[in-house]
Every structure is written in C-alpha cells, then in structure tokens.
Amino acid sequence: MRAAVYRRPGPAAEVLEVVDLEVPGPGEGQVRVRMVTSGINPTDWKGRAGLTARRPDGFQVPHHDGAGVVDALGEGVVGLAVGQRVWLYLAAYRNRYGTAAEYAVVPAAQAVPLPDSASYDLGACLGVPALTAAHCLGGAPEALKGRTVLVAGGAGAVGHYAIQLAAHAGARVVATVSSPEKQALAEEAGAEHVVRYRAEDAANRVLDLVGPVDRIVEVAPMANLDLDLRVLARGGTIATYAADETLTLPGGPLMSANATLVFALLYTVPAEQLAAAIRWTSEVLAAGGLTALPVTSFPLERVAEAQDAVEQGTVGKVVVRLGDGSGRSPRGGWER
C-alpha cells in the first residue's frame, strides 16, 4: 500500500515521505479499513513536529481521523462487517498505522458505522473534533435542553460540532468568532447568535442576546477568561480543550460564581465518557444534524503540504483523499 510515514520528528517537508508498505493484517479485536479520506487535526502536525512526548517506533503513519470501508476483520470482532462504511478516531494513538495510507488497522471500537447519508468527507471531519465537543458539552444531551451554551471559536472544528450538538440537544447557542468569514461559518453551523470577540462590548453583547450562559466550550481560556467570567451563570461550567499555556486563575470570581472548570484531552477521557460521546455523536449524525466543515483536499503525495496548511491555520478542514470507496485510489488525481 501507499502510505505517508515519518521516522523522526521534524518539519513536514523534511520528515514526511510517501512509501510502499506491506498491507497490515488486523490482529485480534482489530479491523482493517480501506481509507477514502484522512482528516488532519492540530494534534497530528504537533506530534510529527515533536511537540508531544511520543516518538515513532521505527515509523509512524500519521493522522487520527478518517473514513473508509471495512476491509478485513480480526478474530473476535463483532458488530462490524466487511464492506461497511466507518469513521475512525484516534487511529494513530499507540498505533503505527494511522489514516494517512491506503489501509489503516485499528481496534474495532475505533471504527464507528458511517450512515449512507453521510459523505466520507464528513466522516473524516468527525473523530477528535466532534468527540471533544461532545465531551466538553458534558456528554449528556438531555442536560442541555433549555440551557444556554457559549462556543468560543465557533468556526473551528471543535466549535463547529459543539454548536451543532448543543443546538440539536435543544440548547440556545451563542458563538464568538474573529471575522466576517468565520461569523458566516458559525451561523451556517446553527449558532442562534454570533458575536465578534474582539469588540469592546463583546461580553455585554452576549448578555444582551442570551443572558448568563450555563456552559462555555473554550478554545483559548486565558485570552477569553475575562469575557467568560462576565457572562457565566452561577454554577456554570467552562470546559476547555486547548490549555497549552500556563493558566493564572482569579480565585475570587470563580468561587463567587460557583464555577466549574473542566479540562478535556480526548486521549485520556475515561472509557465510559468516551463511549457516551461516541453514542451522542452517532445519534446526531444519523439524524442528519452534523455537517462537514469547508474542505481543502490534497492527494497523499502532498501530505506535507496538507499538514503545513493545518499548522498555518487554514479555515475549515484539511484532508488527504485516498480513494472513492470503490477500492480505486486517486494516486495524485485529486485537485486541491
């Protein structure tokens, strides 16, 4: 099979290469998936760049997310069938066969049925962003009905699915963005209101539109902390999935609000909570409540450019396309 690999951390153009590898067979409890679309997240380029602790064991096929067709079942696998469409999450976590290849091998639990109504591009957009969003929203849609949710960075991948999951659960959703282009994306995702967070009156604008908010899905906790504390309802929750910097927290305002501050990293989410996020995401997907982000696509041979595009902050989702679901590979035939 053709696969992207890196053998050491470093810049994309220096360490990523496309090579021929033997097609791996699924072990016990695993499935092999013929990949159609491989989605790229910030965690993918950060791991390749060496910004995380993990290093390749010989080689690493990158990318956690993707969508394709089950090609082979390992011993003991139930609930999936050869030929079934699936979306994958955390494929490259503790596994050298990520989704940036013509075939990926993953534990069966990490291959989730993809409805016929959902495109492979949509399937590749899910994974880390949608499950992170579901977890940050509390993993329980019933608790959101009639509540108010603020989604910071509503045009990002996690923000996109936080808006759609919360709205589908019956919450009022307000999002913050930085530009007219991103405002349009958040509105298209289903946010009831969208506020430019760089405006001087952003917090007042949120309060005027929806009043105090019960839960905040936060992409930049330090940058947005003042706004968050001004709009958070008493007993409210701030759930952040991007807290790489050192946080300095004002204890008094947080205590006065009886606020809960939640940190989310999908790799270490407890199994039962991850299962709840998968169920919720799958239910809303089957109901047609989730959509793909704007997609920028690259062929496998340009995987280094694709990762660089994510690192440079391309709006929407960057993917690598590997086939069309029929077993045919584009082999460079896709256009960006």
Rank of each mutant, 00 (worst) to 15 (best):
A175W: 00
G316H: 09
T52W: 12
A186L: 01
K182W: 00
I40R: 02
W87C: 04
A186G: 03
E28L: 02
T148R: 15
R215L: 15
D324Q: 07
A92F: 00
Y97M: 07
N224G: 00
P270I: 10
T248N: 12
V315C: 01
A118I: 01
S117Y: 03
P250F: 11
V106E: 02
V61H: 10
D20W: 09
A53N: 03
A277C: 03
V219L: 12
V151G: 04
D57R: 15
A111N: 06
G25A: 15
A134F: 05
L114T: 02
V33G: 10
E142R: 14
H64I: 01
L249Y: 11
V105L: 04
P24F: 08
V217C: 03
E28Q: 14
R2I: 05
Q84L: 05
W280V: 09
H63P: 00
L265Q: 14
P115M: 07
R172E: 13
T296A: 07
G146Q: 09
L137P: 06
A81I: 01
A155K: 01
R328K: 14
L144S: 06
A4E: 12
A306H: 08
A53G: 09
L165V: 07
I238K: 04
V5C: 11
V310Y: 08
P107D: 14
V315Q: 11
S178I: 00
A4G: 12
V231M: 07
S256D: 10
V31C: 07
M255R: 13
L80R: 15
E218F: 07
V174I: 15
A81V: 12
A259N: 11
Y97P: 01
L225N: 03
A277N: 10
E181L: 10
N224E: 13
Q164E: 14
L265E: 13
I163K: 01
V33C: 09
L150R: 06
R96H: 02
Y197S: 04
T260H: 12
L137W: 07
E311Q: 15
E102N: 00
V158D: 05
G235V: 08
V262D: 07
S329E: 11
P141M: 11
H135I: 13
K317Y: 08
D71S: 14
W45N: 07
E283Q: 15
I238N: 06
A130M: 06
M1R: 10
A157R: 05
L51E: 15
D308F: 00
G289V: 09
A157Q: 11
A275Q: 13
Q60N: 13
E218S: 08
W87P: 02
P11F: 05
L285Y: 02
G47R: 15
V19M: 04
E218P: 03
D201C: 01
F263Y: 13
V284H: 02
T281Y: 04
S326I: 09
Q273E: 15
I216E: 02
R34K: 14
G50E: 08
A140Y: 02
R55S: 13
P107L: 03
